[in-house]
Design a protein around this nucleic acid. Structure first.
Lengths: 265, 265
DNA sequence: ACGGCAAGTCCGATATTTCGGACAACATTC
DNA sequence: GAATGTTGTCCGAAATATCGGACTTGCCGT
């Protein structure tokens, strides 16, 4: 796309990988950062080199540069590296620059504070679901957030809202087959999934229990654009044994917040 | 540092700039991102090229790569670029990985929600002050946050706490001379500054009014480490005409939060 | 004390990336 | 509608950044 000639000459599968081992520094850095994000833990340089297929001497060189720019930070004294403050600054600039997300931040913070439960704002990226904003509740039973981690759509409550503009056959071709397989080995029946979606659309919210995690219930409400397409969801992650009355009032809160974020009908 | 030989051969002032125009892609990218952060607004590619001194063709090439990695995003249809979602994901990973900051997030969110006023968490970076966390209050009179933007220490309330472990002469040599000059042209007297610092240390908090902005008051309390050094501050940014009783209770809130974040005495 | 392993540095060669400049496609001005 | 400016693409050449591999240092267990 960026370079028609290269594509004609070699076309190494969309520029993903060069035949020879040699790569640009920038591509190495992108791979490095994606790797750290997928691990979500400080990592030793030698491991990064091995797992990303980057020569050791190259990684040392690049890490030095990135640490100096504060994109990365050397941790403890154990020789591991992880993201540095610059990433936070740039990330904050991004959040502030996107209108919907900036507004969603206020809602999510408010919901979490009001209820004391974890509240999230979620969107699709490609054919995967991901958490964009996460405000831990006072309960804080899940420590590490999953912001920006791709999850199969059928594993989530929000996923049932985010595809509700598609026709059933479109949904099935959109979502990869293996994504219907839950982490514990169970398989989500396709017609059940379709039923959930219809139901969710009618109700204006969705509730799932024990989907990914046996003891967790998710409540989600849709944020819709001018064409009424669900472009995001706002949701609660709560213990499955939460009382029904309480859940009902949380759903009302969600719908009110989602309405505020939606383009008025 | 990374390369002794280069330093001996040419020593281009700490590797900052090569005599010749040629530079590594990575260094161009770092300059690009820093530039976007300092502007804090989506920017046209041609302007980036001009203002960072990067050749136009190089910027186009790099921006393509970065957009594909979602580090940058093309905005609107006006040909501007700005930070993309990947920065937010990496930034969130950073926040979650630093114990003090993770705890501070809860405090700042809580303070902002309780009081409805803007609350921040601030630290030093080199000889500059910067806002690390910002939770806008319901008032929201300042739209754009200033997260990660360097500010002279004397311009801020928190700055008076963050240097309180230094002796007066150390402070004066630590803070660049020009940083005592306020944006409106007034100059902060050195002995007055020293007086503020002593006072702040005695009170356990600091209040400044109309320092950078005529109508704004800042209240700040120190977060201290095991050696009682002030390593961060937590603060409110409020209208200067806020009632004294209200301010007093906000100060109490701040001190309580700061205490929670500090290493117990 | 010794051998084996991991962390980190250094250096020269060459495959590759950056760069300048030409060019095409539009937009804007007079 | 001609002149001028802006945005983006393309290409070859030359400067250099990446890479492999050798080397040092420190740690560990035996």
């Amino acid at each position: 796309m960026a370079n028609g000639v290269t594509a004609e000459k070699k076309a190494p599968a969309r520029g993903e990988e060069r035949a020879n081992g040699r790569a640009r520094g920038i591509d190495r850095v992108i791979a490095l950062m994606e790797h750290l994000h997928s691990l979500r833990t400080p990592t030793r340089i030698a491991d990064i080199a091995r797992d990303t297929g980057t020569p050791r001497s190259t990684v040392y060189e690049l890490v030095n540069t990135l640490v100096e720019a504060r994109w990365l930070e050397l941790r403890d004294d154990d020789g591991t590296v992880y993201f540095g403050p610059a990433m936070h600054y740039y990330g904050s600039d991004y959040l502030d620059s996107v209108d919907l997300i900036r507004k969603a931040r206020l809602e999510v913070a408010h919901l979490a504070e009001m209820s004391g439960e974890t509240s999230q704002f979620c969107m699709l990226e490609g054919d995967k679901y991901l958490v964009v904003l996460n405000e831990p509740g006072r309960r804080m039973f899940r420590i590490s957030s999953e912001i920006g981690i791709k999850v199969p759509i059928p594993w989530t409550a929000s996923g049932r809202l985010l595809v509700d503009h598609l026709k059933p056959e479109e949904i099935l071709s959109f979502i990869p087959d293996e994504d219907f397989l839950l982490p514990d080995g169970r398989r989500i029946a396709r017609d059940e999934f379709m039923h959930d979606i219809r139901q969710a659309r009618e109700n204006g919210y969705v509730r799932t229990t024990a989907l990914v995690d046996r003891f967790t219930t998710c409540l989600a409400a849709p944020v819709r654009d001018a064409s009424r397409q669900c472009i995001a969801t706002i949701c609660f992650v709560i213990p499955a044994d939460t009382g029904e009355a309480e859940q009902k009032s949380m759903i009302d809160l969600l719908i009110a917040s989602a309405e505020k974020l939606s383009v008025p009908r």
